[in-house]
């Protein structure tokens, strides 16, 4: 028997936040995936919008490439506002 494909489920909560990954499920097609996601992931009013994406269509960064991918941002601490000392006399900034 062929197994139903895997879908990743994203839900937008009540308060205007972005869609957030909540889990996955198996369904034969996108429409059924949305219906099943409603039952599996929103039984307690968790969301106002559902996205489903076939898991096979997602490209993920490799854990082994963490260094080359994320190191450059570690080296640029001046991107954070706390890098700069502003005298208290200047007031809130």
């Amino acid at each position: 028997m062929n197994e139903w494909p895997l879908w990743e489920v994203f839900i937008r909560g009540q308060h205007g936040m972005s869609h957030r990954h909540v889990g996955s499920l198996h369904a034969p097609d996108a429409e059924m995936a949305v219906n099943a996601a409603r039952d599996v992931y929103t039984r307690r009013n968790e969301g106002v919008s559902i996205w489903v994406v076939r898991a096979a269509d997602i490209t993920a960064s490799a854990p082994g490439k963490k260094g080359p991918l994320f190191e450059p941002s570690n080296a640029k601490v001046y991107r954070h506002p706390t890098f700069f000392d502003i005298p208290d006399d200047v007031g809130a900034m």
Binding site: M1, E3, L6, G23, S24, L25, H26, D39, V40, R43
Partner: peptide, 23 residues
């Protein structure tokens, strides 16, 4: 009882990330 079905599904999905299929 519907919650129990949901709990089973969350857990099957978690197990599938380790390389075993649902079937």
């Amino acid at each position: 009882v519907q919650d129990e079905a949901g709990h089973g599904l969350y857990l099957y999905c978690a197990a599938e990330t380790l390389g075993i299929t649902r079937d």
